[in-house]
Design a protein around this nucleic acid. Structure first.
Lengths: 347, 347
DNA sequence: TTGTAGGCGTTATCAC
DNA sequence: GTGATAACGCCTACAA
């Protein structure tokens, strides 16, 4: 027994000494499945156990040039927009022996660039980003460093990155078509900040497309851009309702904004959907918790997460440039949207 | 111009060569504030820029034995229970030049142990854990590795770790006292899983204390233990309502369970609070979104996050063993709880 | 099947 | 102010 009472972090050397073998052998035990006789392996493993040895990640990364780590950078962890998808992403990675590192940017491009560098310097084997609209310098960096990178939550021909996602524009267009088919003509929009956010931009564009196709001038529809927080949805709603001509339907860039709008509507004594219809996007858990339940666009979050994990790992392991795949979203028609004909005649 | 078109990751060496100085000088420019002449510094910085150099984190950690990284391990990212506090924690860390690494355990102790090892092997300078109940082996490991570790979301004399949090038991006791003062005597509980979760256990204990103090046998109150998911709250509620003697108030271990209970109540055609009162714990955003709003215990999440960051950094930098601090929670009485006298006479 | 030894990219301790 | 150079802990040819 060479156990020292020394409290310093044990290293491969210590384990090797304790087990009476070379460091190479210990390393083999820890990494390669066979290649080591059962007897030696047992000896080594109990030394590892005894010493409470854990490999030094930095050293390992440096020597092996692999980390089995994937980085994901999302705009926010504060609400549930990305929670379900990311959870599925991480579960799949875990199954395949990878670890996920997550960081968030508060929707600020410069922070995203910083986080990308940080994850790359930490040796991430691959990166998952949300959407594809970002500074060219970022793409140059990624390319130079040869870091496999995949975009999620968006699918579009505009993407310079392989992407796993859905068509934000088409989805919102379809929802808007439905709203119009229900007789609404006075539509207002509470959009996310469009600048630097392709998902928000495309969703807004989808509404404009739909209006145009129905002979309505898109520029007539009031649009408020605001960041994705419940309180902001509330404020925007209030502002919209101060206009001389009140909209009969308010379409929101996501569920969070929509819930804020619903909340404020109630506080203002307005009934949803009798006085005003409200729609969201994402179909997060919140959508079915509020009263009435929210009409929204359902996104296959979990499927997207799993697919993204599979594809990113393929890119990493097969040195592939990556293949995009488009997922289908679908409408969820619920209580917050009502046909205009059913509205009580007013004035 | 020695710029090569070589796509390999640039190293300190490359920068040094490009700038015509030694690697030591480059390192100084990147790390120490002065100690380098302005002229050299400029030369170096432009080389860094030109090459798109980012330091290799692993190498740096190995040489410096510091990473300016803090790890946090939370039970779940799926709902907002920890979101606000963690956000504040990370903001404060960022201010002080630290990076936060987060991972989650799905409330599984073995996963927590795994994540702890992972973060330690990644060189985390300090760790934030939730609560204090965990296997002794984990504490031994932490001690051996000399990793400064702080517990949050709980404050109790039982804690083997310095902790920043509130008294879960006293908080829930106070809420229960209030419920009883409103005339309720038939109380049922939907608790989180108590095993391995000191917060859940203490909250339940708080209810039992209160009942006992009011001359009610705590063992008479039906208790269902289930994990923190909306749907589980719903199921538990339904089960409770199948009992011959229906409770007049259902106290839930947190807001997530409470919202599930409210949802199911509505689906079952029961009115909250006229037919049954429901309470939660945490005061997450959800609590004010549901109708009626949820009576709950407010926790100073953001304050807790900030304080935890300050304290943990102090432990890391001053090599301190850490000081605990207790925060005050407070009741939020809202629509989901109603005095029993006001209930319509039944039967 | 096992051991030897070089190298991964930094930082820090010396000299100069 | 600046430049050598020895660690740091691990992996992986290459040898034996």
């Amino acid at each position: 027994m060479n156990v020292t009472t020394d409290h310093a972090t044990p290293t491969l050397d210590d384990v090797a000494r304790e087990a009476g073998v070379s460091t190479a052998t210990v390393s083999r035990c820890l990494n390669t499945s066979d290649l080591v006789s059962k007897k030696t392996r047992d000896k080594v493993m109990s030394a590892v156990e005894l010493l409470g040895y854990t490999p030094n990640f930095g050293a390992r990364a440096m020597a092996a040039k692999r980390t089995f780590t994937i980085g994901a950078i999302i705009p926010t962890m504060e609400n549930a927009i990305f929670a379900r998808g990311l959870q599925a992403f991480q579960e799949r990675l875990h199954e395949k022996g990878y670890t996920l590192l997550v960081s968030s940017t508060a929707y600020r491009p410069e922070l995203e660039a910083e986080q990308i560098r940080s994850l790359v310097s930490r040796g991430a084997d691959g990166l998952l980003l949300i959407g594809y609209e970002r500074d060219d310098a970022v793409y140059k960096y990624l390319e130079r460093r040869r870091v496999p990178t995949l975009a999620a939550w968006a699918f579009s021909d505009d993407s310079p990155l392989p992407s796993v996602g859905f068509d934000n524009q088409a989805s919102m267009l379809e929802l808007c078509n439905t709203v119009l088919a229900m007789g609404h003509t006075e539509i207002a929009v509470i959009s996310g900040i469009v600048e630097g956010n392709d998902r928000a931009a495309k969703r807004l564009e989808g509404i404009r497309d739909s209006l145009r196709a129905h002979g309505i001038d898109p520029d007539r529809a009031p649009v408020i851009e605001t960041s994705y927080e419940i309180e902001n949805g509330a404020k925007a709603f209030e502002k919209l309702m101060q206009a001389p001509a009140r909209p009969t339907a308010v379409m929101c860039g996501n569920d969070v904004l929509a819930v804020g709008a619903m909340q404020r509507a109630r506080e203002m004594g307005m009934d949803v959907p009798d006085d005003v219809s409200i729609t969201g996007f994402d179909d997060i858990e919140l959508a079915t918790i509020v009263t009435p339940q929210l009409t929204t666009v359902h996104v296959p979050h979990r499927q997207m997460g799993r697919l993204a994990a599979d594809e990113l790992i393929r890119m990493v392991e097969k040195d592939s440039i990556g293949e995009s795949s488009q997922l289908q979203s679908s409408l969820r028609l619920r209580g917050s949207l009502k046909a205009l004909d059913d509205l009580p005649a007013n004035g």
